[in-house]
Each structure stands twice: as C-alpha cells, then as structure tokens.
Simulated assay, not measured.
Amino acid sequence: MTALPALAGRRLWALLLGVLLLAGGATAYTLRAAAGRPDAAAAADPGFRLDAPPGTLYFRDTATGRVARQDPAAPGSRVAQGPRCDRFHAAGPTALCLQRRPGLPARSYVLVLDRRLRELRRMSLPGIPDRARVSASGQVLAWTTFATGDSYATSAFSTRTSILDLRTGYLIKNIEQIPLTLDGRRHHAPDVNYWGVSFAGDDNRFYATVATRGHTHLVEGDLRNWSARAVKENVECPSLSPDGTRIAYKKKVSTDPRAPWRLYVLDLATLREHPLAETRSVDDQAAWTGPGTLAYAHEGAVWTVPADGSGAPSRTAAGATSPVVLR
C-alpha cells in the first residue's frame, strides 16, 4: 500500500518538471524571436538627417544610446533623435550603425543607413561592437567586433573585422585570411587579429592594426590585390588624415593595464611621430574633424585636440562617444 503514494508523488513531480521545461522553452523562444526582430523604436526620427551645416559634430549620446548632433560652438544645441547605435560612423551618403542585442552568446547587428538615416541593409554578426568606419566616398564600410574579451589592454581577446563594398555588395566576413607581410616575409600565425580599419581616398587601400605574437603593427592593406604589409610597430586604431599623409593612433607607452596608451600622429612619408597634447590614456579610434584637429571619446565625453601636438585637449560634448564630422 505504501508504494502507491510514492508512485503518485513521482508522477506529480514529473508533471511539474514538464510544465517548467515547456514554460522555459517558450520563454527562451520568445526572447530569441524578439532579439531577431528589428526594433522600430531604435530608428531615427523622420526629421533627423545627416544634413546639418559643415562642422556639425555627430556622435552617440550615451544617455539615450541615440545618434545626436551638436554645433561644437554651442553645447546646448544637442539634438539626439538619430538611430540607437553602440558604434556609429558616417561619410558621403552612408552611415554605419552597430547595435548590440541582449542574449548569450552576444549578437550584434550591422545597419547600413542612407543620408536620411533610413535603413538600407541589416546583417547580424556575433560579438560585441567595437569599431566602425566608412570610407570618404561612403562606398566601403568596415567594422570590428570583439569575439571574446572586451578590452585591448589584456591579451585575452579575439577580434573579427569585416569589410563591405556597397558598389558590388561583396562582403569580406573576416580579413584575417589576407596575406600578411611582416619584416619582409610572409607571416603565418594562428593568433593574428585585425581591428581599427581606416580607408584611403581611393576606396582600395586601407590601414589597420594587426596583432600577433604579443606585438601590434600598423599595416597597409590593398583590397584589389588582396595583400597587407606591416609599416610600423606599436600602432593601434589608426585614423588616416583627410589628405592621406598622416595617421592618428594610440601608442602603448606603459605596461599598466589601467593607462597603457597615449595618442600620437605619424607622418607616413617619413615615419616620424609626435605625441598629442592629450596625456591621458585614450582607448578610442580618433576621428579627424578637419585637417588639423582630432576628436575622440574619453571617460564618457568627446574631446578635441590639435593634431600637431600643440594646445590642450578640450571637452566638446559630455555624455558622448563615436564622434564624426561629415565633410
């Protein structure tokens, strides 16, 4: 007689377990479905476009996550009505917006937008958004995500850098397979990581960082010939000047993981470099806002500094990242 209650108890527990599993599965499915749907609330307001007067600063407003614009001379002029982005860049007729969505593993979306910030193309990709760049013509785009880790200050990270040519629609999902010449020889190693692409004006050449065997290098890439060669060691997150003669970048100057870098500018013809007046450690891919000025994000704000090493850094926009001035 005592076996019957025990059997009934086991059946009850089995029933409850089944209900919980079904409920959990339904919840997980709902979350996955929601994560895959475009978020209408993340789109730009209809009147917000990339048509402000020359010199207007665009950036990501950290309070709302939306793209904003501001007259650098009038901080109170901020308007944050653009799309929601974790990283943003724009040039020519094109804008690039990287959005991170919740979930495990981390998933992100690449949004290609027009000058009115209307969505032209959307692609999903794994990882955490990190860098975004559009060529001056607006025809070639690049982005980098962290596949593992979330900081260049440690060795425990892996990146994935992609390039999209809007003229042909051709997408290079990961440029790690590009033949690399290092110290005059073809370099093969399983630890090669690329990040921080910056395009030349011909939409063919590009500059980027490559890390391998514990060192970082500035590389010059050639998309048409599908090749890359190392130019200089200890260069990260390069940004090519509008005239194509200089590279702004962060240089590792300390082994302290809390403050390892300082911003520098490199003359490509002579390979001579000089530090900028910004002495704090900046972990960003600086943006040229003109022929002699750089903007970058640091401690939750956008700062500007002269590119020739003179002057002093100036806070241009509080609560902001991903600065860009359209030309």
Rank of each mutant, 00 (worst) to 15 (best):
D39V: 09
A91Y: 11
H215R: 15
D183V: 11
S281F: 05
R78P: 00
A286P: 06
T209V: 06
E273D: 14
L271R: 12
V192F: 04
A68W: 05
R262M: 13
R84S: 10
L111H: 12
G25W: 07
T212F: 09
H215K: 15
G184E: 09
D256H: 06
N234L: 10
R205W: 10
D284E: 08
V192E: 03
A35D: 09
L182C: 05
T212P: 04
D114V: 04
G311Y: 07
D86Q: 09
T168W: 07
L31K: 06
L180A: 01
A28Y: 10
I172N: 13
F59K: 00
A90Y: 10
A95R: 01
V231L: 10
N204M: 06
R185G: 07
R205L: 14
S310V: 02
L276C: 02
V265H: 02
T27N: 11
D191G: 07
G201Q: 09
L50D: 00
G201R: 10
P260W: 06
A3Y: 15
R167M: 08
G309F: 08
V302K: 00
P93C: 11
G24H: 03
R315Q: 12
P129D: 03
I128L: 13
G47M: 05
L98G: 00
G65E: 01
L125C: 08
H188Q: 15
P53D: 04
A91Q: 11
L271E: 09
C97F: 02
G292W: 04
L57N: 00
K252S: 11
L111Q: 09
H274G: 04
R32H: 13
N234A: 08
T161H: 06
S162E: 09
A42Y: 06
P238T: 00
A287E: 14
F48S: 03
D150A: 12
P54C: 05
L223R: 13
M1L: 15
L7F: 10
R213W: 06
R262N: 12
A317C: 01
L164C: 08
R272K: 13
A307E: 02
R115H: 10
N193L: 13
D45M: 13
R101I: 12
D202E: 05
V235L: 04
R32S: 12
E236K: 08
L218C: 07
K250Y: 07
S254P: 02
P38N: 03
